[in-house]
Simulated assay, not measured.
Amino acid sequence: MKAVVCRDLGLDATAVEVVVPPAMTDTGVRIAVHAIGVSFANLLVIDGKHQNRQAPPFTPGTEVAGIVTQCGPKATLFKAGDRVVAGVKTGGYAEQVVAPEDTVFALPDNVGFDDAVQFPTIYATAYGALVWKAGLQKGETLLVHGAAGGSGLAAVEIGKLLGARVIATAGTALKLQAALEHGADVGINYKEDNFRDKVLALTNGLGADVIFDPVGGKVFDESLRCIAPEGRMIPMGFASGDIPQIPANIVLVKNITIIGLYWGYYMGWARQPMQPGTPKKVRAAFHEMLAWASDGKLRPHTWRKYPMQDFKQALAAVSSREVVGRVVLNP
């Protein structure tokens, strides 16, 4: 089969090669891959800068969708021919993957493969953050930074489904329009306006109840000054390249909660073992999200599709920050 192989750290040492298909495991599900999700995290892994460091040689990629071709002897949930979406710790940039059954999920017939690859980490992170962790309630105000990226659009859509008023920030009119089309009530161009002042004005001085921040840096710092008392802040990424330091005095005097969420923990990719019952909880979440997608309530946006051999172009687009939504590879 063909796969993208990183022989040493960095894109210059990464290329499409013909390799031996991955070995089957007792609870594995072999998938003929039709679509692969492309993310900034993939680029960090290739460069050796991600917390989940891989020793070369390896194949990057964590999100795939396709058709089951084989199941391990102890896998009981799927059969050959099933349409599925899956999360894998590594190995996704390939024509075949073998994924643990616990991270493979049945795909509704009317949800396409290209749309599906946004669910294993992108929509799942937004769901886990807003539903499980923040407990976002109907009528609350949700502030979403980086609202036109894959994570941001997912948070906008799920926030609206939960009944929140959604304020979106982005750096161009085109990106703000995308956020509005996916459900945001208000858009703020952070390059033209001070989002802190705008959020306070839009909330009668109270601030946002929940803040979803994939940017970090100064955006996080300013967000602490426009969060409502008893608000919940979710620093779920650092696209700015700057990891903020959290001033404990502000957390104290504003009675706010800082929420950590690493979705890889729920997929079994973390160093710590999962709590009992986690796979069942995760499967229920995917069932709900994919049902929403089937009903047209979630609408993943694919900015562009590339053949797998053009993976470097796809990663360059992601790195340039020009992408609205997600980029997909097709083997």
Rank of each mutant, 00 (worst) to 15 (best):
A155Q: 01
L43M: 12
K49H: 12
D12Y: 10
K191M: 11
G61Q: 02
V219Q: 01
K218E: 15
G159Q: 03
S319K: 15
I259E: 01
I258G: 01
T76S: 14
Q177W: 06
D82L: 07
E222T: 04
K254R: 14
D185H: 09
V282I: 13
G128S: 13
D197P: 05
A116L: 14
R30D: 07
A291E: 12
E101H: 12
F78I: 05
G146V: 06
V97P: 00
V88Y: 03
A129R: 00
P60N: 12
A168V: 08
A208N: 00
A168G: 09
K280L: 15
G37T: 07
P279Y: 07
S223E: 03
R83F: 12
A155V: 03
K198Y: 11
V97N: 01
G183V: 05
E17Y: 13
G216A: 08
V20P: 06
V131C: 12
Q118N: 15
P229T: 07
G112D: 12
S39D: 13
E222W: 11
L153A: 05
L252Y: 15
M24W: 09
S240M: 07
T69F: 11
N189A: 09
F119D: 01
P244I: 06
K218V: 14
Y190N: 03
I243A: 10
A248R: 12
Q275K: 11
D242K: 08
E181N: 15
Y265L: 13
A13S: 13
G171R: 05
D213N: 02
M308E: 05
F311I: 04
T302K: 04
I31V: 11
L202D: 13
G66A: 03
C6P: 06
T103E: 10
V104N: 03
T141W: 11
H34C: 13
L176W: 10
M1W: 05
P273W: 12
A170Y: 08
D295N: 15
D26G: 06
G159K: 00
L130E: 05
N255A: 10
A94E: 01
K133P: 06
V156L: 11
P100C: 07
A106S: 12
W292Q: 06
G149P: 04
V199G: 02
I256F: 14
S223H: 04
V156S: 04
Q54G: 01
E222I: 04
V33W: 06
Q309I: 13
A3E: 08
K305L: 13
D193T: 11
K138A: 15
M233T: 00
K49I: 09
S39F: 08
A270T: 04
G241I: 08
G152I: 01
A129Y: 06
M1L: 08
G81K: 08
A94K: 01
D115H: 15
S320T: 07
M233N: 00
A154V: 08
I259R: 02
A239W: 11
N194W: 09
T25V: 12
M1A: 09
V215D: 00
K218H: 14
A134D: 02
A147K: 02
H287R: 15
G296N: 03
A134Y: 05
Y123I: 05
L298T: 02
S39P: 01
V98S: 00
D26P: 03
T169E: 04
E230T: 10
D185V: 05
G150R: 00
S240K: 04
L180M: 14
V324W: 12
H182R: 11
D115Q: 15
F195V: 02
L43G: 09
V4Q: 01
P247W: 14
V111M: 10
G61T: 02
Q309A: 14
G231A: 04
P21M: 11
I122Y: 09
